[in-house]
Design a protein around this nucleic acid. Sequence first.
RNA 1: CGGGGCGUGGCUCAGCCUGGUAGAGCGCCUGGUUCGGGACCAGGAGGCCGGAGGUUCGAAUCCUCUCGCCCCGACCA
Length: 564
Amino acid sequence: MQWSKLFIPTLREVPAEAEVVSHQLLLRAGYVRQLAAGIYSYLFLAQRSLLKIEKIVREEMDAMGAQEMLLPALNPAEVWQESGRWDVMGQNLFRLKDRFDRDLCLAMTHEEVMTTIARGELRSYKQLPQIWYQIQTKFRDEPRPKSGLLRVRQFLMKDSYSFDLEPAGLDASFDKHYEAYKRIFTRCGLEFVAVEADSGAMGGSQSTEFMVASDAGEDFVVVCGSYAANLEKAVAHPVPPAAPDPDGEFEPEPVHTPGVKTIAEVADFLKLPASSQMKSLVMMADDKPVLALVRGDHQLSETKFASVMKAREIRPALPHEIRELFGADPGSLGPVGVKNIRVIADKALEGRRNMVAGANRDDYHLLHVTPGKDFPVEFADLRQVAIGDTCMECGLPVAIRKTIEIGHIFKLGYKYSDAMGLRVQGPDGSDVRVIMGSYGIGIERILCAAIEQSHDSNGIILPPAIAPFQVVITPVNNGDEAQKQAALQIYQACQSLGLDALLDDRDERPGVKFKDAELIGIPFRITVGKKLAQGMVELVTRKSKTSEDVLVAEAAELVGKLCR
RNA sequence: CGGGGCGUGGCUCAGCCUGGUAGAGCGCCUGGUUCGGGACCAGGAGGCCGGAGGUUCGAAUCCUCUCGCCCCGACCA
């Protein structure tokens, strides 16, 4: 294509509203324009890149035997009411009414519709397994869209759904996706990590997220050697307590601690490190109070807590609730003498003795509190992994990294098939429940992640597989007939090799053309200039900023090799 | 939803405090000179200052309300 005829509105300055790099560059390079908060128009370059990403996704999905469909984005309320998600999704679901006052929504995923199709049509075990997928626009009424294309209200997603007869079949479908996802992200040129993820309180035995390290991300993952998990789910050995527990059989002993409330203040006042204290957190799990205990220097993981409680909704208790339940204010709370409230402690407190806790009396703490002896307790993993923790597998310190989630694969189990009555007839004529999995990929997020991961002060650096064009041919002076002809010749040679080539035939100064080509991230540039007299042109690699002189006749073929 | 910031030509921003109906750079158009890293000269087009109401002789500027966008937090199948 000829640049002079294209709409590629590059910007010299960064639009004020863009904060994260991928957002700034997508705007500057003329890929996207914003229509409203979290709603973007994908212009020519973005669309080309997204189509290439989709093509890779399709090839790999098709290769595993998945079948592509296209389902409605506009859904009747009924199917969402059947699955229960009409209520569960709350405000995140875009809802609307039609002219007859019927409730509708814009789908944020397609479990309901897929299950509706499956239960109407799948009748025999012989028809299983099935894997169905689609690439389409999803809608979510995000409370706070942000970070350019990373958290938006309308976005493209590849979602697939597997239907199997038994758990082993689901495992196989899950594994197929796992492998396909690795190939997809590798082909897209991304450095990614697959991590264990929290599968939520409602069903689902296993889930894996695919993450790309980036400061623009919103998720944290814990990684070390072969271990990788979302921070919400990660486990690791805590650093040992800073001081040994006092030896001996003691009874809890009140100590006056006026105005001493926080862990740090208690540590200072009693000259005992935070790790010798029990942090008492009053939580409401589905509106029932629970006292959660973690080591003083540890943090409660709300995800783990919710999961242990099997609660749909958890929140910290309000000050007045705490007062009513404990007779004391936060800062003096503890587990001793607590009645009719479930007490659950993090595993790091198991085996500890003679620790410090609040006395449930304002301005008092207790010394020598031992879990199990001084109060009944159950133990569970409640703690969020922290920097300094060591890996359960290799013993080395774990790293915590900020990441962008680009894919998530999920064993759903029977949640939707049970809720919506999806069964098939088994070999013996009886009804068999169908077990499902769901698997998502954020299409735009792949593009964003690629940009976040690979850019420099001049702009985007895209891998050839997902760049809108693989090569740009730039005659330094398009008014020079010899240069113009040579550029055209190379351009045509690229095309005949099947390369996506762009001919920069604009009547611009060379600096402008170089800057633009670099900004929009085209991996290779062939510059036709002075050396044409010797039959040579320059092949410039965007990523390495290196340049080599090549023969006019060989330029296209060289680029072809580099793109493979 | 809580906290903060910002809305002035296409983009970046000044002007607002101390009211007198708008300015710069870039971009755009025309002509010319240029042509290996976002050229130069000359000429030109383009905004009623997010919106509504109020105060005032007079409002981009002061007051009230409202809409939108961004950031932090809460939230995030």
